[in-house]
Design a protein around this nucleic acid. Structure first.
Length: 419
RNA sequence: GGAGGGGUGGCCGAGCGGCUUAUGGCGGCGGUCUUGAAAACCGCUCUCCGAUUCCAUCGGAGCGUGGGUUCGAAUCCCACCCCCUCCGCCA
C-alpha cells in the first residue's frame, strides 16, 4: 500500500512513478475520497469531544435533567450518522488504495515488456553438446521419471507425476537448497501453513486484485498459497520489531498452488508451469536503509545454488512494466535449459520496500524514544523446484539418454552416478 | 463435532454501567544514594488517526474482532475469531 499522506502531499510524484508501469491509476478519485473522509472524521470528532464533555458532567450530577438527556440523545444520533459516513468513506478509500501497485525504485529501467529488462550478469557458458540435447519431457518419459498421463488422470492438465529418481531428484534438490541457505547463508528454516486466511493474502498483495489466480476452500475460507512469500509476510503481521533483531532471514520450503488461467496450449509441454509445484523461498525483513543492499545479498544467495549445481545462468533486472504488483525492484535469475532452448526463470528476487509492511502492519523502532516506522520486506525463490529439475535433466543429459547426478546432490541421492 | 471456561498494556493480573486520563505487580528506562554495584526510594513507560502556529500542542479512537443498547460501555446484548479443559474422532 502506498502511504495516503504521500499521495495527499505529493500526488504528482506518485502519479509519475506509478505511470512508469505503463498504466493509469485512480489518484484523483483517491484524493477526493480522502478529503471527504477527513471532513467527516473531523466533524464527528468535534461533536464527540463536546458530547464527551457534557456526558462527563452529567455523570457527576445527582439530578439528571431530562431535557439535557434528550438533547444528548439527538447529538448522539448525529454522531452515529457521521461515523457511518466516515466509515463508508474510509472503506471506499482503502479499497482504492489496496488496488494501487508499489512505486518502482529509482534505479529500475523504465520499460514496457520483457525486452526492456536488462541482463546484469551471466555466469557459465552453455555447454556444447555433441548430440542434439533433448527437452526434459522427452528425457523424463524415456527414463520413466516424469509421467504426464498419470498427472492428467489424477488432476487434469498442468499436473504431472514424478517417479523414482525423478521424485528423488526433486527431494534431493529441496534438502540441498535448504541446507545451503541455513548453513552457509544464515537463514532460519521455518515450516508454514500452505492454506491461509484471507487477510494474509491482502497483506502480501495477492488480494483483493488477484483472487482469480488463487485456489480457495470456500467452506472454511482458506486460501491456498501461490508462494511461501504469503505466509512469511504474515509471520510478523501487526508487530513492532526491535531494530537489533533486523534483518530477519527466513527460508521455507512449501508447495505452491496457482490457477494460471492461461490459454490452452501455451507452455503446456513439460513441467515448467503447473498448478502445483514446490519451491524453496528466501525472505528478509529489514530496516529501510538496508533493503537495497539486502536485495543484492538475497540474489547472491539464490545464485549460489545455481553455481553449486554448475548450471549456466543469467540475472536480469526487470523493467518498470514487468514489476510485480508489490515489487519496488526485482531481479530474475534464469537458468539455461539446452533441451527446450530457453532461459528458465528459476527465481524472482524482489525488494517490496514498505508496500507489504504497510498492508501487514509490520513496523520497527529506529531508536530509543523514536516513533515506529514500517520495515521493508524482500523475497526470492531459492529456487523454484520443477524448473531446477528441468535444468538439471537437460544440462546433465548424455548421448545415451541417461542423466548424470550433479556433484553436490550425490550425498542426497541414493545413486552415485546417474540414471 | 459436543459440553464447559476464558481473551485487559512488553508480561502477570484487578476492574463487571459514570469516582479509570484502565488499580497493583513484574520487566524496561532515567534519577537519588554509592568508590562501583546491589538494595531502597522517586519519576517515566502503548499504538493509531486527525487538526494546527508540526523537534510541540490540542482533539479523537483502541480492553480479541465487528455490530448494537445507553446521555455515558473494559463492564450489558448479538455475531464472529482465537485459546484452554473434558468427551468423541483421528495421523
Amino acid at each position: 500500500m502506498i502511504d495516503i499522506r504521500l499521495i495527499r502531499e505529493n500526488p504528482d510524484l506518485v502519479r509519475r512513478e506509478l505511470e512508469k508501469r505503463g498504466d493509469t491509476f485512480a489518484l484523483d478519485e483517491i484524493l477526493e475520497l480522502d478529503v471527504r473522509y477527513r471532513g467527516f472524521l473531523r466533524h464527528s470528532e468535534e461533536l464527540r469531544a463536546q458530547h464527551n464533555e457534557t456526558s462527563k458532567q452529567l455523570g457527576m450530577k445527582k439530578e439528571k435533567p431530562p431535557g439535557l438527556i434528550a438533547e444528548m440523545r439527538l447529538v448522539g444520533e448525529q454522531i452515529s450518522a457521521l461515523q457511518q459516513q466516515t466509515r463508508e468513506a474510509r472503506a471506499a478509500l482503502d479499497a482504492l488504495l489496496l488496488e494501487l501497485p508499489n512505486m518502482p525504485h529509482s534505479g529500475v529501467p523504465v520499460g514496457r515488456s520483457e525486452s526492456d529488462n536488462v541482463v546484469v550478469r551471466t555466469w557459465g557458458t552453455p555447454k556444447e553438446f555433441a548430440f542434439e540435447p533433448l527437452p526434459h519431457w522427452e528425457l523424463g518419459e524415456k527414463l520413466g521419471i516424469i509421467d504426464f498421463q498419470q498427472g492428467v488422470k489424477l488432476s487434469g492438465s498442468r499436473f504431472y507425476v514424478l517417479k523414482g529418481l525423478g521424485a528423488q531428484l526433486q527431494r534431493a534438490l529441496i534438502s540441498f537448497m535448504v541446507d545451503v541457505h541455513v548453513r552457509e547463508h544464515g537463514y532460519r528454516e521455518v515450516y508454514v501453513p500452505a492454506m491461509v486466511r484471507r487477510e494474509c493474502m491482502v497483506s502480501s498483495g495477492n488480494l483483493p486484485k488477484f483472487g482469480d489466480n488463487l485456489y480457495r476452500d470456500e467452506q472454511d475460507d482458506f486460501w491456498f498459497i501461490p508462494t511461501a512469500e504469503v505466509p512469511l509476510t504474515n509471520l510478523h503481521r501487526e508487530e513492532i520489531l526491535k531494530l537489533e533483531d533486523l534483518p530477519l532471514n527466513y527460508v521455507a520450503y512449501t508447495p505452491c498452488f496457482r490457477r494460471e488461467q492461461l490459454a490452452a496450449g501455451s507452455d503446456t509441454r513439460g513441467i515448467k508451469r503447473g498448478h502445483q509445484f514446490e519451491k524453496v523461498e528466501l525472505y528478509k525483513v529489514t530496516d529501510p536503509q538496508s533493503s537495497d543492499s539486502e536485495l543484492e545479498n538475497l540474489v547472491a544467495d539464490a545464485e549460489a545454488i545455481c553455481r553449486k549445481v554448475a548450471i549456466p545462468y543469467r540475472v536480469a533486472q526487470l523493467c518498470t512494466g514487468e514489476l510485480g504488483f508489490a515489487a519496488h525492484k526485482t531481479y530474475d535469475i534464469e537458468m539455461w535449459a539446452p533441451g527446450c532452448g530457453e532461459w528458465l526463470e528459476v527465481s524472482s528476487c524482489s525488494n517490496c520496500s514498505d508496500f507489504q509492511a504497510r498492508r501487514a502492519g509490520i513496523r520497527y523502532r529506529p531508536g530509543r524514544g523514536a516513533g515506529t516506522q514500517f520495515v521493508h520486506t524482500l523475497n526470492g525463490s531459492g529456487l523454484a523446484l520443477p524448473r531446477v529439475v528441468i535444468a538439471v535433466l537437460e544440462n546433465y543429459q548424455q548421448a545415451d539418454g541417461t542423466v548424470l547426478v550433479p556433484e553436490v546432490l550425490k550425498p542426497y541421492l541414493q545413486v552415485q552416478s546417474g540414471c
